[in-house]
Amino acid sequence: MQTKGLYRSDSQHMIAGVMGGIAERFGWNANLLRIVFVLVSISSAGFPGILVYLVLWLVMPKQKRVELYNS
């Protein structure tokens, strides 16, 4: 698993893995982060959270899988 930088999670994803990747990076609960994100987005004027999520989806790289082979 990658430990530095932000990435879109391959295992903790519901839509694109953005919140799952952030949660994995900082050791947070992904579902709790999603709930907080949605609540903040709804309470903000004009729903800028949707735009932020889309930008993060485009900017954050996908998590690289490490394949281990037995030789």
Rank of each mutant, 00 (worst) to 15 (best):
M1V: 12
M1I: 09
M1F: 10
Q2W: 10
T3V: 14
T3L: 12
K4R: 13
K4L: 11
K4T: 14
G5S: 14
G5K: 07
G5R: 07
L6N: 04
Y7T: 08
Y7N: 00
R8I: 01
R8Q: 15
S9V: 03
S9C: 08
Q12T: 06
Q12F: 07
H13K: 15
I15G: 02
A16P: 00
A16V: 02
A16S: 15
G17M: 01
G17A: 05
G17S: 04
G17C: 01
V18H: 01
V18I: 05
M19Q: 10
M19K: 06
G20A: 08
G20H: 04
G21F: 05
G21N: 05
I22L: 15
I22K: 08
E24G: 06
R25N: 15
R25W: 01
F26Q: 07
F26V: 03
G27D: 06
G27T: 07
W28F: 15
W28I: 06
W28V: 05
W28K: 10
W28Q: 11
N29K: 09
N29W: 04
A30P: 05
N31Q: 13
N31P: 01
L33Y: 04
L33A: 14
L33G: 03
R34Y: 02
R34T: 02
I35N: 11
I35R: 11
V36G: 05
V36I: 14
V36Q: 10
F37Y: 13
V38N: 03
V38W: 04
V38A: 12
L39S: 11
L39G: 08
L39D: 09
L39K: 12
V40A: 12
V40M: 14
S41L: 00
S41M: 04
I42T: 14
S43I: 08
S44Q: 06
S44C: 13
S44N: 10
A45Q: 07
G46Q: 08
G46E: 09
F47I: 05
P48V: 02
P48D: 04
P48Q: 09
G49E: 05
G49T: 03
G49K: 03
I50E: 03
I50F: 12
I50G: 15
L51S: 10
L51C: 07
V52K: 08
L54N: 10
V55E: 00
V55F: 06
V55Y: 04
L56E: 02
L56R: 04
L56T: 03
L56Y: 01
W57D: 12
L58I: 04
V59R: 13
M60Q: 06
P61R: 13
P61F: 06
P61G: 05
P61M: 10
K62E: 07
K62F: 02
K62V: 06
Q63C: 06
Q63P: 03
K64E: 07
K64V: 03
R65F: 01
V66P: 00
E67R: 14
L68I: 15
L68P: 01
Y69W: 11
Y69H: 14
N70V: 07
N70D: 10
N70A: 12
S71R: 10
S71N: 03
S71I: 02
